[in-house]
Design a protein around this nucleic acid. Sequence first.
RNA 1: GCUCCGGUGGUGUAGUCCGGUCAAGCAUAGGGGCCUUUCGAGCCCCAGACCCGGGUUCAAAUCCCGGCCGGAGCACCA
Length: 480
Amino acid sequence: MAPEPNGYPTLGHVKGLLVPFIYARLYKGKFLLRFEDTNPRVEKLEYYDAIRNELGIILEAAEKELGLSPGKWDEEIIESNDIPKMYVYAKKLIEDGNAYVCTCPAPVVRRNRNMGVECEHRDQPVDKNLELWEMMLDGGFKEGEAHLRLKTDMRHPNRTMRDPGIFRVIEHPHPIHGDRFRVYPTYDFSISVEDALTGVTHAHRSKEFEPHVEVQRTILRMLGLRQYEMIQFGRVTVEGIPLSKRYFRPLIASGILSGWDDPRLPTIRGILRRGIDPRALVRFFYDLGPSKADVTISMSAIFAENRRILDPVSPRFMFVPNPIKMVIMEAPKKLEADIPVHPSKPEMGVRRILLESKDGEVEIYISSDDLKQLKEGEELRLWRLANVRVRSIMADEVTAKYVPSTRTDVKILHWVPTSKYTPVKLFRPLSVYSYEIVGGYGEPEMAKLSVGEKVQLVRYGFARVDSIQDGTVSLIFSHE
RNA sequence: GCUCCGGUGGUGUAGUCCGGUCAAGCAUAGGGGCCUUUCGAGCCCCAGACCCGGGUUCAAAUCCCGGCCGGAGCACCA
């Protein structure tokens, strides 16, 4: 896989990562991570690290979920390290009459390309080209003033084949090499040389590069380098949300999004922070397959995978959003509830919540969201605690009467004691631009959670603990 | 407009290179049942597809031709 370190990896990168990884492991090949860093204007050191980190997490999960090991890349290559070698190949192209230095301004080149016209530099003698090339390297040209161009066919039906530029001057420090270079290879040239040199046998790229296959084959042929398979796969988009950095950058700069790990973002770190298990991503993209068709995925499909992974292992907690007090009258002295950590896994244990009545009354919180469906006189079950009959519903309080039954064919509500509870702040992502904060109370035991834990809020959904401050637990809502 | 690439149940795919084992596999969503003191999940069952038209062949999802629809590229960016 060969990402450009020009941003934080997103959901869009996962297919490009997993397709070649799975392919390599299945066929006992090697999986290479190569940084395509030949345009220093957009690349930054922090992105190399983000890519290493995020891809590492996904591959580790792939090892667990798919049993393909080792779940990491076999070798890391930094393309820019080989720029000196590429200069040597460039010189060879010039000497063989396969490349020339062109000093036409960009608009002229564009016009010539469109119309299939050759410029006067095309037929310069080799000596002249060599001289100009040395000038390029020595700083004799400013950015945009000169380009080394492949001599192919200016009337080729595939326009990317019309004398493509292969080296250009960029006057901008490189994140790794600083100002060591001022002439950088372009995409087609650098990957052709790198793939051939590093022993790549099967290069997977996304579909938009298809027209470039011909250019790269031409470069390999002219240089006498080894040919290899070039395989394309379709692009992934997420229902409506663009995956482009251009779109998110201003939202982050303006503070609408909190950063590249904002849980509303389709960046890998955003998704993980939201509480998606990396194995869910792996499973999802594995099922998506390597096809060449472009697909629009929906987050709900990823959520379904996540639920499948989390459901069997995540502890349950009662969370009461928008709480309202309920007074239970005629209650026995003691009411106890044994709350299972996981209803179908007794080995995960139970928590006992004990409520003592005062003057025959017990107080709990229920969610006012549940209130709308309640009728006076209705019997309902407080989960694992007791049955009650609703007496009155007022704006700030509900009263009910204890019923000594354990019927479960009535509405079941969850609750927390008023005497002891954990304040909970839940962040619900709505769109890239918006979110909702839901406040409420959780079971006392929730105070013991730690950051990063994933829980299931009973009858509410899955959430991940994002932070804990002064006893208040901040959760990020993952999905239902 | 030009170049290239796709089109398999509601959705996402496998199969297409090397025609038969594909009256088409898998997943997800849908319907029904079981289980369950949350919601999921789990288990069982049901239903559902080869873009269209020609051709080649004993035989076509698969090969050929024509059409229709969709996507990508057409930056001295990757």
